[in-house]
Simulated scan of single mutants.
Amino acid sequence: MKKKMISFASLGLVCATFFLSCESNNQAAEEQLDVALETPEKIISNAQAATLFNNDQQTRLSQIGKENTRFKDKAIHFDLATLETYINRLENLASRNIPITGASFVFGVDANGKRTAFLMPSTRNADLDYQESFTIENGQFLTFKHVDPSLKLQNNSQNDENLVLSENGYLSFNEAVVMFNNYQTQYIQPFAKKVTKDYYTKAVWYSLDEFKGYFNYLKKKSDKYKLAITGIDVFFGVYNNDSSLELKSNAQTVFLAASTQQQTIVNVKGKSLQRLSQEDFFAKNDEEEVDGSLAFNLGHLSPPPPRG
């Protein structure tokens, strides 16, 4: 009888161990799924962020005599709470049948000659098949055509809707036009004299859901790793000159990185972009790096290349 009881007890221990093992495996699988779901699709590795940053220095700034641009002048800083409020406002407008598909970082140059980018709501231009920026002023729907080499000022322009967000606050249509036109004359034209391309990027588009997903991702990582993320820094980057990238080959873009009060950080270890861009980053470009990365890229470039 004792032997039978011992056998049943042994069986119970085996079963308990089996079920605990199953439960542990399921929990591990669920945790992996949670990580996969909470990581935005467009998160890029630390190495990719550093490559984009360095490519911009080597293939753009150095080409047009601006190779001495300081690191702090390359960062376009946005407060995270301000960005969240802005995207929520666009979402509310979209719910009122205003055809907002997302927002674009439109390229510009400020009054001090610093290259920058400002945010504008976008709608799909069905004729040209691209995301076209717009704003609303004095009750008018004003398009901001990236396909044009320069834009015309309005006779009367005032910032009455707060739809164009720069790093220094909201802009009127005319203020945005001046900055956009300055980018054409100070950055595109000098580069075009050296490198002929079918088109030159003037804006990068993300959907509203992509913005919100990235904000949530940063807040979760900030809480988990005690990173004190307070903002997002936007940097100009350039894709590799690789034919497999097709239209993105050697194309200008922007990428986003987390920002604390002190510096731009690119991973959960708090490593700074400035330090990473100066190191030998090419050896590290694996999936693990993407999991811990805080950089965001792969937006839609605009304008589209001309149709044949």
Rank of each mutant, 00 (worst) to 15 (best):
T17L: 12
N46A: 07
F173K: 10
T253W: 06
H146I: 00
F255L: 00
K74S: 10
R307Y: 07
I136M: 14
T143S: 12
T260A: 01
T185E: 14
R115V: 05
R307N: 14
A126M: 10
V109Y: 05
L61S: 07
F296Q: 01
F235N: 09
Q278F: 02
H77M: 08
F180P: 05
L163N: 06
G65K: 00
N54L: 07
Q189V: 07
E137Q: 06
D56V: 10
D291E: 15
T185R: 09
N155H: 15
L171E: 13
L33R: 11
L52Q: 12
N174M: 13
T116Y: 11
D110R: 09
F118L: 04
D56C: 12
S95W: 06
V177P: 02
N156S: 07
F78I: 00
K226G: 05
G299K: 07
E30N: 15
N92D: 12
I188H: 05
K224A: 15
K269D: 06
E246N: 12
N162K: 11
Q154Y: 10
L227A: 02
D160R: 07
T264P: 01
L90S: 04
K226S: 10
K219L: 08
E287S: 04
S157Y: 08
S249T: 04
V14I: 10
N97P: 05
D127C: 03
G65S: 02
S157P: 09
V35C: 13
A228G: 04
L245K: 04
I188K: 11
I100L: 14
Q131A: 06
I76D: 02
W205Q: 14
P121G: 11
D148T: 02
H300Y: 00
F118G: 03
M5H: 12
S24G: 11
K2F: 12
E91P: 00
D209P: 06
E91F: 00
G292T: 10
L83H: 04
Y130W: 05
A258H: 04
D127W: 01
W205C: 13
L298D: 12
T143K: 15
M1T: 13
M179D: 15
T51W: 00
A36C: 10
A81E: 10
E246G: 05
N174R: 14
Y130A: 07
S10G: 09
T201G: 01
S10K: 10
E167T: 03
N25V: 15
T201E: 08
F71T: 04
T39N: 03
G270W: 03
L294Y: 05
A49L: 00
F19G: 00
R96S: 11
K224L: 05
N156W: 13
W205A: 13
E41I: 01
G237Q: 06
R70G: 01
Y183V: 08
S244P: 03
L256P: 01
F8A: 12
K42Y: 08
V290N: 04
K224R: 13
Y187F: 15
S302Y: 09
K271Y: 01
L11P: 03
T82W: 02
H77I: 14
D233K: 08
I188C: 05
P304E: 12
V35P: 04
L20N: 11
R275V: 02
G299C: 02
A203M: 07
A16W: 02
Y187H: 14
E279Q: 09
D73Y: 13
Q63T: 13
S24Q: 04
S259A: 11
R275C: 12
V147G: 01
L61R: 04
V35N: 10
I229V: 09
A111M: 06
